[in-house]
Amino acid sequence: MKSSRNSLRGMVYASMFGALTAVGAYITIPLQPVPITLQTLFTNLAGALLGGYLGALSQLVYILLGVMGLPVFAGGKAGVGVLFGPTGGYLIGFVLGAYLMGKMIEMRQQAGFGWIVLALGVGHVVVYGLGIIQLSAVAHLSAAKALAVGVLPFLPGDILKILVAVFLTLKLRDYIKL
């Protein structure tokens, strides 16, 4: 996968996954307590299928699409304000999280179910960590309140999405030629 760095092939796939992550915000599946969007599913898949470098690049493309003013952030938000606002930490977390997921999966020749679950889980810890830090700092909430507002409602959906992402990674990774 090293050769894909800076190649046309890698660029095209990373921009596709950036666009997919953006479009994912519009595909909603009802679930209790908070309906899930397919957005972070594509963040997971970008890291798992493209590897660390391209996965992170795809998420960077996604963030820049939002910064340019396309309503692609969760709930149809857009603009630099979102990046500096209460929920901006999650967006920065997507880049780092996708990088970590990809790097961990690249460490194994042919990563199995358990290893991919672990990699995606570690990535989510990073996303949540950065998200809560910015949420509590910007909105002046205590860590416990930030956890209650910023993590707990999304946990069931995210666990479901991790499991689906692992299943999809195992299915799709033979179709993608990087």
């Binding site: 660029m11 596709m16 953006a22 396309l70």
Partner: peptide
């Protein structure tokens, strides 16, 4: 430069 190209690709494909 590559990033700008990727942005235009993503814009086109969304």
């Amino acid at each position: 430069h590559d990033l700008a190209m990727m942005l235009s690709l993503a814009l086109r494909f969304m």
